[in-house]
Design a binder for these strands. Structure first.
Lengths: 327, 327
DNA sequence: CTGAAAGCGCTTACAG
DNA sequence: CTGAAAGCGCTTACAG
């Protein structure tokens, strides 16, 4: 029923090989190329990509595995990845793991079956730790989170420095009892905590941290619990945009004025963080560049498979707003 | 290099046909099935999906074509679609058109080359109007926007009623000079405008509308222009979540108190709309259900290709907040 | 530059 | 239930 390459060949009076070459970059005379193009138009022929992929052993497909596309950070990164991919003539398969190691394994298997060209992956700590170089049949670029040094290319934020910048700013603004709420599943959250702890120590301050699942609901619940206690912090640094939203809700629920009763700072410069009154102090991540750089690392790796493993570390940009006003 | 079905067959001492059947739902004796499964484990075999798709003529793939995944409405819908798809053993190819008719055409062609099982599509008005039933080799389900009646299955919001509900609420709150800012590219924006106009007429009020590209920046610019005029409206209804954000920015830029100097209402119950002070009155869309219903329509269509075209109309839920407080 | 032929890795009638 | 064989729709050495 569907028109195939044989129909086009017949219509153009050439062999299927010539049709194939005319549509690809093969050497074909101008005359025949035009005949083929006319035949393609006349028949409405569309090549079958499954057949092409099977025969050419090149799927032109990259897998993108993230925790949840509804996390604005991943939304933005994925858009950058897709733009770069389609521009390079590749398509992308998107998978949401919900920070679940089993689903990560499932999707990694799927990527094998798809014979993908490469994968861009934001793994949980569990999975990242278990991933050895050469385990998979395709190159992997880690984003947002990294694994064991030297195993895979990665592009991450300088999380330690970003956290420290937040602490330094809060200290400069007159805060001392600064708490940290961090996600429990990613290396990124760990690094942000480490940066927080180091900076607190540098200032001679006592660190106080809590951990929870990296989503708004969990962060709200944990914040409410924490902030209802007697010795609650006077400022809070929160691990990501979703969790920061939870912390804001918690402050509202407990009627804590920001920054009067509680200063707030976090990560991800989502549009809404500017709209609040006061606006929220955050670390802006170069989301588009993270996606674009990940694609670059992947393409470089495909070109030079034996090149040493690279780790691209990007700096966050502190955006200071009213939520961390002077104490 | 990669292990194929022949290697598994050899390892299990059976034919490739038996391996194939053991991995699918074919009839195989328990004994052989176990041998095959052991061989699969031993060899680490992963079937090549390109080959399977080519041979079986079933790609198990659905295309999802939206304006921009960064629009939270589409983010949420796409997550619902993907969950349903993976649960049904299908994968999804995501495409962003940026409301560009050329890119829509491009991606529709790509879908043909992928030989997708079906497509879920939020088209611009231009493309929707041009799409005739039977043009494509696969069923299409329109979401958020619909085309000519009877051409394709669709799942949309009751936009007319939703807009009217917003007008009614504003009138009840004492507003009369109510303006409407609507997107210029979708049938949805048109319906929302029509609903607004009808409701205004019903109340004996003079409608006043403006149109702009459906994004935050364009809405902000247009709002600033409009609200700086002498006869500016005392309340504004805005077409979608992105544009509503632009209107909020405009009010801030012009130092218009909400709702004192300008009441604000719109669409899409994004988390941030509740966080503002006052919160924003919005129509909440059943995003997850839209995605799930679209998949249902698609599956039903695949089962019964000749069934009459269906249009699922879902109701929005008004969420009344302070931004439309009494005048 | 062009064509005939082989083959990518599967699944599926067809026999038995 | 099982196997030998054909074939899905392309691309690509191999000759010419």
């Amino acid at each position: 029923m569907s028109v195939g390459i044989r129909d086009v060949a017949r219509a153009a009076g050439v062999s299927t090989a010539t049709v194939s070459r005319a549509l690809g970059r093969g050497p074909v005379s101008d005359a025949l190329r035009e005949q083929v193009e006319a035949a393609v138009r006349a028949t409405g022929y569309r090549p079958n990509l499954s057949a092409r992929r099977l025969r050419s052993q090149a799927t032109q497909t990259i897998g993108l595995i993230v925790a949840d596309i509804r996390n604005p950070f991943f939304t933005a990164v994925s858009r950058a990845v897709e733009d770069a991919a389609y521009q390079a003539g590749m398509r992308v398969i998107l998978c949401n793991t919900d920070e679940d190691a089993e689903r990560e394994a499932l999707y990694l298997r799927l990527m094998q079956e798809e014979r993908v060209t490469g994968v861009i992956f934001a793994p949980t700590r569990t999975t990242a730790q278990a991933m050895r170089a050469g385990d998979l049949d395709f190159p992997v670029v880690l984003i947002d989170r990294s694994g064991p040094p030297g195993a895979h290319d990665s592009v991450v934020l300088d999380n330690t420095a970003a956290s420290a910048a937040l602490v330094d700013h809060l200290v400069a603004q007159g805060y001392a009892r600064i708490g940290g709420l961090f996600g429990s599943t990613s290396s990124t959250a760990q690094e942000r905590r480490a940066g927080y702890e180091a900076a607190m120590a540098r200032h001679g301050l006592e660190p106080a941290t809590r951990a929870c699942a990296p989503n708004a609901a969990a962060a709200e619940a944990e914040s409410v619990r924490w902030l209802a206690e007697g010795d609650r912090p006077e400022a809070l640094i929160v691990s990501n945009g979703l969790m920061l939203m939870g912390a804001v809700r918690a402050a509202r629920a407990l009627a804590l004025a920001v920054p009067g009763a509680l200063a707030l700072a976090g990560f991800d410069n989502e549009p809404w963080t500017e709209l609040l009154d006061p606006g929220l102090t955050v670390i802006e991540q170069p989301v588009a560049e993270i996606g674009a750089q990940a694609m670059n690392l992947l393409f470089d790796r495909l070109k030079s498979p034996d090149q040493p493993v690279r780790k691209v570390v990007l700096s966050g940009r502190p955006v200071l707003r009213g939520s961390t006003g002077r104490r």
